[in-house]
Structure formats: structure tokens, C-alpha cells
Design a protein around this nucleic acid. Structure first.
Lengths: 270, 270
DNA sequence: AGATTTTGTTTCATAATGTGCAACAGCGCC
DNA sequence: GGCGCTGTTGCACATTATGAAACAAAATCT
């Protein structure tokens, strides 16, 4: 299997591209569409959209809602989505450790990867506490202002971080959000040096979070785990505790994935 | 939105159909393919497959493995798959009850729907016991010889059951498997009358299972829950207990989904 | 190490097929 | 009960997907 190919021209099948584009129009906030609605949104012709939908429906990639007659994402996507191998293995390995972590700290736990320069939640364990975080498996969050995101960015080559900044920008969410590229780079260096990231209201005012990276057997950071709490006052000692807990967890998961270096006792000492 | 359309001719976009077919070639057992391999399996031409893969890769519906260069299902499918609305809501509502059920019985819990006449696992809570069942969210199991499947079939119109039998057959797995259509129909009538199904080694010798249906607000059975145990000896009293527990759970979930009838105390009394 | 097979990539001509247009048909809404 | 919406269908045309064949990079075998 030759890997080093130039991949010169792009041989894309247009109708397929349209179909895939169509599928991506569906979001958690807008889970269903009619034919005309989709057509105008995507700038495609009504009949094109109609035929694409019929095709996708035939294979259960979309399905019609019985009552409204509108189209939604279909069960086949659920089936295929749960087969995405690398995430599947990651989740499987991580699960028991995340459950243990959840029990030990009683807070909400997230497992996430970086995709398109954004945080993509891969697993979530909810805190039994009444106040819940607005997040969901399969959803995305910005990287530059979340604990998970900063950890995942920290182990990327700086030029890739720049590319992500160029593409996604550094939107300000609170007065704590880092919006200066230089400062972000400096901060990421600190995260890398420490081996963990914290977030104290950089994305949402009351959210506090401690996050640490997961390495795979090749020594690459492939995911991150976070503990999220909601708190009015900032308690440094509690944060230290959470940092210690996540790092312990991610060290174990990394070990299970075959990671075998640098993970000395020293790096776990707080 | 007109619903009652005849849907006469099928306006399928062939290249899209091929792309979808291609995606479905990936299974848990064969998660990655090369171009040529896929082409021969699907009976498509090498260049066609190549271009389809390039297109799918561009939108992250497939991705290449860094080391082998082969193609796997991509992260976009994971993202879209976790947005499939009806399953998402079902899972969300059911989760807490399933967790409670898991704690109360200490066994493996499954949540499943019927698709293509098969059981499709939608959620799974693993027992802490060392011996694990071979099942996974997103995978499928036959309907005629599993507790979940029999519950889901039981509330279908008989002609639909026949259609499923015609399509999928009634494969024998053990000497307990029901392979006669007539006997299956009779058995399903019993399941419907009782409001639950059991499975004592119909699919796999040592597997015992108790399952009950979930109704939605329209009064339709949309899913089923099961408790699975592994046991050498059959203990009727333990089974009665499990049946009671699942039924309690599914009654609660159905209520949360807005189901409001027939679910009298009587039907819960054992 | 060299020869051979295999696998992925590219080009190109041709015919297939996806597309836009325009018309039609249910459905809901005033 | 008519008006406007949305989904559906037929058709002609040109776009574009496709298969065949050639090429290149790996992998495999000798």
C-alpha cells in the first residue's frame, strides 16, 4: 500500500460530494428539514435535493419523520458511526478508568479528540449533581478556551496551531478567553511543560475544568480527559486535586494503549 | 408537507448509491480495506472505488490509517451517528433507568430497536462480572432467537413478521431455537399476552435473558430492554425476579416517553 | 539485491446519468 | 374554497461518472 503518493489532482465525485454535504446540514439544533428548505439552504436545486434524499433514504442514511414528513438523519448513520474504529477502541479502553474517575471526584467527565481544530466529545459521564453542562457526545466545542482543547493543541506542532487559529479564529467568550495568538502559544508551552491544562471560565464564566492528555502506543497525543465543575469561588486546592486525578486517569489509559515512556513517577507527582 | 405520496418511481442517484454501499462494506470484523480489495468485493471498478474513497475522505466519512494506508470509517460518521435524533432521545430518557436497573440486578443491560428485522443494540451497560457478552452498541443480532428480538417482533403486525421471516429466515443456533414460523407466531402471541419475553439458550447455549418493550407516546413499541445473565443451571425464581425488574424499568421509560395507557398495576404484578 | 507481482494513481474518450426546468399534485392556511 | 406552499414527476441536454489501459510506487518473492 503506497503511502507517499503526491495526491495531485482531486478526483471527487460531485453528486456524492453533494450528498455528503447534505447530510452535514443536519445539526443538533436543526435535526430535520423539508426538501425545499434544504435546497435553499444548500443552494441546490429542489429536484437534486429530492433525489439525493430519496437515495439516502433508500439506504437509511436519512429517514422521514412519520408525523411531519420531514427528513432526519437515519439509523444507518448511527450504526456506522458506532463502528468508527479508533474512537471505538479509545472509548472501550478509557471507559472503566473514566467511571472510576467519575466515582472518585463526583463531577462530569469528558473524553474528547481534536478534529478540524475543534474539540469533539467522544464520551461523557455525567455528574449526579443537578446542574448539568451543556455538552454531548458527538458535539463540538472551541479548542482555544477549553481545558480539553488546550491540552490537545499543546502537543501539536506550532505551525498546525497557527493553521487552526487562522481557520477558526480565537473568538472571545469571556474576559478570561485568550484571544492573542502569541499568548496562546506561550500558554500552550506551559500546558505542555506541566502536562495538564486548566480552564477557569475561559469559555463559560462559571465553568472550571482540569484536563490531561492521552498518549497512544506511538507516543502521539490522541485524546484528552477532563473533569468539569461548576463553582462560584475558585478553590486552588480543589483544582490541584482534580488535576492529580485526571492525570492519574490519563496515565493509566495511555499505559493501556501501549504508551511506555516519560510517564515516570516524577511527572505524576504534584 | 404531503405525506401520502405514492412514491412511484425510484429516482436514485447511482454514484451516491455506490458510495453508500461502499460505506456499508465496513463492518466490526473488517474495519479496513484497500482500494483493490474493496473494488473486488463490491464488484466495482478500481478507479470508481478510488474516486469514491477520495470523495468520502475529503469529507471525513472515511479516513486512511496512518500506518497501513488502508481506509477506515471516518470521524464524520461518528459525529453524524451520534446526532440521530430519535435514538438520541430514547437513549437520553432511558439511561438513568438503565443505570438503576444495572445496579439493582448487577447484570448486563441492553437497549435495542428493531431495524431490517434485526435487533440493533442502541445502548449497553456492562455487568461488572468478568464474563462478558459478545455484543456492542451499533451491532446487530437476530430477532427470532433473542429476548429483545422476540419482544420487538411480538408487537408487529403478523404480516410484517412474515416478511421478516421471508427475508432473514429462521436460522438455527441451538436446539432451543424456534425455527418453525407457526411456532414463532404462537410464541410471539404469548410474549404479547405476557408483556415480556425470555430467552433461555435460544441464541447461545449459556445465555439467559429477560426482556420487555418500551412504548412511546403514540402507543407504539419503539424499543426493548433486556437483562442478560450467563448461567449453567436454570433458576426459575431468579428469572421471575429479572422479568419483574425489566418490566418495572420499561414501564418507567415508557411513561417518560409519554405513554399513558394499559400500564396499570395489574400488568406489573407478577 | 533484482525480478515480479500487487496496489494505488492518473489519463482520456465515450456513453451514461445527474441536472435544471417546468409542470403537476397533495396539503394546509387563511 | 381559493391561494400558496411543499413534495413529486417527466423530459431534454450537457455535464460528469465511468471503464479500460497505462503508470508508478510498494511489497513480495526468489
Amino acid at each position: 500500500m503506497p503511502l507517499g503518493y503526491a495526491r495531485g489532482k482531486t478526483y471527487h465525485v460531485r453528486s456524492v460530494l453533494k450528498a455528503l454535504e447534505l447530510l452535514q446540514a443536519f445539526t443538533p439544533d436543526e435535526p430535520e428539514f423539508g426538501v425545499t428548505d434544504l435546497a435553499t439552504r444548500l443552494g441546490m436545486h429542489k429536484s437534486t435535493v429530492f433525489r439525493l434524499l430519496m437515495t439516502l433514504e433508500a439506504e437509511k442514511f436519512v429517514q422521514r419523520d412519520h408525523t411531519t414528513g420531514k427528513y432526519r438523519l437515519g439509523i444507518k448513520l448511527f450504526e456506522l458511526g458506532s463502528l468508527v474504529q479508533n474512537l471505538l477502541e479509545l472509548r472501550k479502553v478509557a471507559r472503566p478508568y473514566l467511571e472510576e474517575l467519575q466515582e472518585r471526584c463526583g463531577e462530569t467527565i469528558h473524553l474528547a479528540v481534536l478534529d478540524e481544530g475543534q474539540v469533539l466529545y467522544v464520551d461523557k459521564l455525567e455528574s449526579p449533581k443537578p446542574i448539568q453542562m451543556y455538552s454531548r457526545v458527538g458535539r463540538r466545542a472551541p479548542a482555544h478556551c477549553t481545558g480539553l482543547g488546550k491540552v490537545l493543541l499543546a502537543y501539536l506542532p506550532p505551525e498546525e496551531v497557527d493553521a487552526i487559529i487562522a481557520r477558526n479564529g480565537l473568538k472571545r467568550y469571556t474576559d478570561k478567553t485568550i484571544t492573542d495568538p502569541r499568548k496562546l502559544h506561550d500558554h500552550l508551552a506551559l500546558v505542555r511543560q506541566r502536562g495538564y491544562a486548566t480552564d477557569i471560565g475561559e469559555h463559560e464564566e462559571l465553568i472550571r475544568c482540569a484536563s490531561a492528555p492521552i498518549w497512544d502506543h506511538t507516543g502521539k497525543v490522541v485524546a484528552a480527559v477532563s473533569i468539569t465543575t461548576i463553582g462560584v469561588r475558585f478553590d486552588p486546592r480543589r483544582m490541584d486535586e482534580l488535576v492529580h486525578l485526571v492525570r492519574e486517569t490519563t496515565a493509566q489509559i495511555s499505559y493501556d494503549l501501549g504508551y511506555r515512556q516519560g510517564m515516570s513517577d516524577a511527572s505524576l507527582r504534584r
